[in-house]
Design a protein around this nucleic acid. Sequence first.
DNA 1: ACGGTCTGGTAAACTGTTTAAGCAGTTAAC
DNA 2: GTTAACTGCTTAAACAGTTTACCAGACCGT
Lengths: 372, 372
Amino acid sequence: MSDSQGNTTEASTALVGSKMRQAVPPRRQGGARRVSMREVAQQASVSVATVSMVLNDNPRISKATQIKVRRIIDKLGYRPNRLAQSLSSQYTRVLAVLLPPLRHAFSDPYFGELLSGICDRADRLGHKVMLESAKPDFLRERKLLELFERRFVDGMFCLGVNDRHPFVKDFAAAGFPMVCVNNYFPDLNLDYVVADYRSGAEQVMNVLLQLGHKKIALINGAPEAQTARDVFEVFTARMNDAGLETDAGWTADGRFIEEGGAAATDEIIDRHPDVTAIFAGNDKMALGAMHRLVELGRSVPGDVSVVGFDDIQQMAFVNPSLTTVHLPLYEVGARACELLVQRVRGKTDKISERLATHLVLRDSTSIVSGRS
Amino acid sequence: MSDSQGNTTEASTALVGSKMRQAVPPRRQGGARRVSMREVAQQASVSVATVSMVLNDNPRISKATQIKVRRIIDKLGYRPNRLAQSLSSQYTRVLAVLLPPLRHAFSDPYFGELLSGICDRADRLGHKVMLESAKPDFLRERKLLELFERRFVDGMFCLGVNDRHPFVKDFAAAGFPMVCVNNYFPDLNLDYVVADYRSGAEQVMNVLLQLGHKKIALINGAPEAQTARDVFEVFTARMNDAGLETDAGWTADGRFIEEGGAAATDEIIDRHPDVTAIFAGNDKMALGAMHRLVELGRSVPGDVSVVGFDDIQQMAFVNPSLTTVHLPLYEVGARACELLVQRVRGKTDKISERLATHLVLRDSTSIVSGRS
DNA sequence: ACGGTCTGGTAAACTGTTTAAGCAGTTAAC
DNA sequence: GTTAACTGCTTAAACAGTTTACCAGACCGT
């Protein structure tokens, strides 16, 4: 029951608190005595309201008072207490980032880029960023909602969510400011910012077809993500347009990881030994595919062209360097942040943005070999 | 001047705030009306103090009152406002993580592991984690101190700091709870938790010497990190103990990155073509070294043994798999978190812990080849 | 001299908690 | 027989800001 305080630790917080206060009568924490607005007001011979208005650049304050108060502020080294500010203003200026509970979510370049974009932009917009891991119990116990209800944050980013996360739906209903980053739910009325997977996939298909490929396989990632389905749909549509085969044998699931890419390659080669091009739903799977192809004695791109998706850092340096679709992940994060801040500030129009992607042509693709 | 509000954005916050309030008279944010302690108290016919004590499991509250109040709390769906709690209790229960301003700090497995450890443990201890990037201006403008002065956080973790970061010194003087994670400053009185680099290096030297190597080179990382110097010192000491050469030609700087490892390998091979073992200060450099050695026509471990440091995920899967020192980075982060929380709660003894490391023997090392 | 409108400021109410101090009755210790 | 320490609860003062309503004086026209 005590967890309505979010307090699952040993001693009663209340006791700990009082003990510390007694020990240090004139409330100090880090050596520096804390100065409050009242003291500034006293020294400047004005009211606290005036000090507050000075800090907020309220036009009703005269130049003279401005300067007088600012001088005292500097002299005393006063800093407004943001807890009090937030309590009063109802804005915390903190945003939460919900990350999937993968053990290595932080070391993943995909999330890393999104996170960098979010953090940089948040900083520039005067907001702080808080990390949350979407652990099962975290979702069950509606701790997510608590984040808002208890006024921890003004808004939230959801990274790495997909159809298997029912909480998103509940959450959407609660109506707190939230934006899905780089995924979306066509039938939920949720704000989102995504990279344009469809256009990226179109470009991949264009280049492969133009290079003369006709035996093209798709290694796709988790089908529970709408973006992955988008890629699949484009693949199928373009293949059909070109009058090419696309039965189930031509696609395989690589679970978005390197080993999955290798395994999927095995499947494909098994079913279609004459494949000349593999389109992987992300770079890691593409890498796995390349490695496996080489192991199987096929040269890349000589025998088989490989195209990735994401354009993560390392892929420019592997051998052969990987042709891939660049996703502006940093920008997706940054833009999501911008829009979320606007929404927090009261903007009500739905957020749904698609950022352009582009093909990066490198060495893992070539014109289809004579032999096919 | 308005930046004493930390507010560098367009419109005056004050105005934005008031506008929103007018628009939405009975203060609502996400659909759910917000319930305060007063309302709970009223409905339960007790004072707010009683409600507060119920929430804090104060033993002076009778069972009956407990139940009565809790029922109302559940009925109204009341959640304590943590801004008010923090304002009153002086504890925010938020910790900041200071990361180096590397563009890809988040995608780095090194920081990723530390961060995971910190976040998981913080969550379990009922604390939130806030991200901060140590950008130059962030440090210059003492925004770091503001984090504490303005009561954003109770404590801070410093990741990736080294001797070239003078702010650490100033910061230490201010006396706010802070702990250096996986680095330390012998002559500064700073709290720290590190992996035991010395013992790790000892183990590496032991195994290399036992395998009969006598021509051992060290590719070290940034010498501005004490941990890197520790490795260097152990290397030198053990080589001297064994009566082996360790002049400057036997060490090279690889700047902790893969390309640096490759370049350092060139230098070493150039000066000592008869080298039989390379000890790299981290796995990335070791990987760079392995690649370069193969490019130069030397087999690993046939001609040259390579040992890394860190034990990052991928290195178990490269070929040959890398012998390396496992750093318990996740645990370092978690332990640092535990100790920081204790310190925030008033514990005053200096924090300085060294977590055990161990060698992971894999395929990149072998007994020295007959030829040398 | 008198009402009207600015101007620059203040006092007080408000945000939602925690906690010290107190209250009146009971019980135990000295 | 007085002091002291419980009991379960309340009152009121913090905590540190924002914001609204009001006010005194200057200025202006009539």
